[in-house]
Design a protein around this nucleic acid. Structure first.
Lengths: 304, 304
DNA sequence: CTCGATATCACGGAAGCCAAACATGCTACG
DNA sequence: CGTAGCATGTTTGGCTTCCGTGATATCGAG
């Protein structure tokens, strides 16, 4: 086995041409170098230097060792520098609700990548409650989710609200304009997965005092929801942003009465300042700016 | 600063979920782990674990450290394994005379690469005397050169002789067939660089008792020699193999009298067994086999 | 209070420093 | 030509500092 110190010392010996010169270069006593090298050779059972009266030269094995191990020292120093000099690097574990992956996430990641090329992201897409739990358990560094149950000590920054609409595939269903709650409840509905806040909101909106419970299907995958709605499986509750992002899928917003309107979704970007103050702040900044961009974009898409 | 041991210990703590468990896993005492981690944190001025009554968890900085440094341990173990288990790896410093780069070298390297994918080559092309000196000074591991002055203790394996011919660009010079020494000496000659054995041989062949010294130009680059001869700058002394390798350059061998024939070049593959026994043997084997192939090839090209 | 965890304290061994010994090549002188 | 002296470099022996062990103190949660 060999350590970083061994490599540094061997490198110094090679570079300066001997134990003596290496001792000056490293600040170690020359005797320490001698004994260290011998000990290392004994441990690894290879000879690293060929000695004779007037100095030492690398053996073939020694040269191989230096060539290969040099890079380790370099990398160690790089890691150390990045860690202590506050360079933003490493892996950021990011949890997002799926809706966000289609809106602010791409812009946010682009922003972060240009500012901090060393950062790597590991993105989990899940329901807000799952993400919330992961954040609490230190399974995530930053989360973008709906405020569910908020643990204490968390930092939470609101993002622009996401507005929902009722959508249907063009000409699959015949509905009055505007449609009322009863009209909607009579049809199969594809919505957010069971257990999530928007799912509960849809249930609450449609259920009270109705004879037969509305057929509400949940899907954790927005792509699946879009697909099902497009195929005429039912009508769907879909964020306006998402629908606008696929303008040619044949989806059409259903005009509804005010009482049938769906509440907005309030997303927040959250992190634990105790654990991830620096990264959390920076990701939050990027998310807020991406959200601001998104507003512009919303206006643009409204023009379409 | 951190060492391999630090990383291994931190990894053990993370994997087994605490100092206590890590102490069982690593065989160290629990107190040693505690103190080591604290010292490390002090030295690096970052906090790696977040402690409370019921255990420890990685901080963000700690996770970054583990993520980035894990690979260092892996690489260290790989290097150690390769060194001690006698895998042929590392960089082989190879010195060759230029003639050889066009004959056995490509086949030899292909052979070695397929048998030892871990090997890397660093190839120097120079005159035989330079290469010889480099080999003596441990600037090369293996050399392919003409035997010049041979240091003692060297291993030398002869390779097939290289035959030389006089070449000229078609129809640039008018010579009797066969040409004699005087005919050749009257023309500008492009040959091997001054100071090399074949250059001396050309000089010796042409100079004795002549009124005006023959105009012998030297070039260390075979490509340059070929170019000059092709352009009609003069006639050249070129290995048959090389000329055969460029069959469409308009070069034509000059038919000469026996007394004007050039001596063969005797190349050998050399290494210092004291320093590079294992690699030297293997490269020698590959060179000899490539030389055998070359003989076949010579016959083939003679058919063209 | 008890349990399960980490932190701390006194003591032995490896790794480091200092000084002196040892090996080798070079030079100059008899 | 042989050899003493010197210059240069490595190895070897005493003495201190840091790392690992074992037992004990301390702390937080249930």
């Amino acid at each position: 086995m060999f350590g970083f110190r061994d490599i540094e010392i061997i490198r110094a010996i090679v570079r300066h041409g001997g134990f003596r010169a290496a001792s000056d270069a490293t600040g170690l006593a020359q005797s320490a170098i001698s004994r260290r090298v011998r000990h290392l050779e004994d441990r690894m059972k290879i000879s690293i230097f060929e000695r004779d009266g007037r100095g030492v030269r690398l053996t073939a094995a020694g040269r191989r060792l230096v060539d290969e191990a040099e890079i380790l020292v370099t990398q160690r120093d790089r890691i150390l520098g990045e860690l202590t000099q506050g360079v933003m690097a490493g892996v950021v574990r990011l949890g997002v609700a799926e809706t966000m992956t289609h809106t602010i996430l791409p812009r946010m990641l682009t922003d972060l990548r240009t500012r901090h090329p060393q950062l790597r992201f590991e993105i989990s897409v899940d329901t807000s409650s799952q993400i919330s739990q992961l954040l609490i358990d230190d399974g995530l560094d930053v989360a973008i989710m709906m405020r569910d149950q908020l643990p204490r000590g968390i930092s939470m920054t609101p993002l622009p609200s996401v507005t929902l609409g009722w959508f249907a595939a063009s000409s699959h269903f015949r509905l009055p304009r505007p449609a009322g709650i009863d009209d909607l409840a009579a049809l199969p509905i594809v919505s957010f997965p069971k257990g999530t806040l928007p799912h509960r909101q849809v249930v609450n909106l449609l259920s009270p005092g109705r004879k037969t419970a509305a057929a509400i299907h949940g899907s954790a995958s927005l792509a699946t929801v879009l697909h099902l709605v497009r195929q005429g499986f039912g009508i769907g509750t879909i964020p306006h942003d998402i629908a606008a992002a696929w303008p040619h899928t044949g989806l059409e917003e259903i005009e509804v009465l005010p009482e049938a309107r769906l509440p907005d979704l309030d997303f927040s970007i959250c992190y634990m300042p105790e654990r991830n103050d620096e990264i959390g702040r920076e990701v939050t900044r990027a998310a807020v700016e991406a959200g601001a961009d998104r507003s512009d974009n919303e206006i643009n898409t409204a023009h379409n």
